[in-house]
């Protein structure tokens, strides 16, 4: 299946839980925010959220800024 993750198309062998996708890309997911198809998913719900074919996912974090 294909998803769009942070603007990049990614091929996944099978559907995954959001929590697994986040930990694949984030060393420390504590301060990460996830959005699936424009909807913010609370981190407490990541273990229940399955990423489906065609989903658009944004993972954002804090960086330096003025």
């Amino acid at each position: 299946m294909k998803i769009t993750l942070n603007g990049t198309i990614k091929e996944l062998p099978q559907s995954v839980l959001l929590t697994d996708l986040v930990s694949q890309y984030c060393k420390n997911p504590k301060h990460i925010i996830a959005e699936v198809n424009g909807e913010i998913i609370k981190s407490s719900n990541w273990t229940q959220k399955t990423v489906a074919d065609g989903d658009t996912i944004e993972l954002v974090g804090f960086v330096g800024g003025g």
Partner: peptide, 9 residues
């Protein structure tokens, strides 16, 4: 102040 950005995959 801090900013938000897509994480670097």
């Amino acid at each position: 102040t801090v900013a938000l950005r897509r994480i670097d995959l």
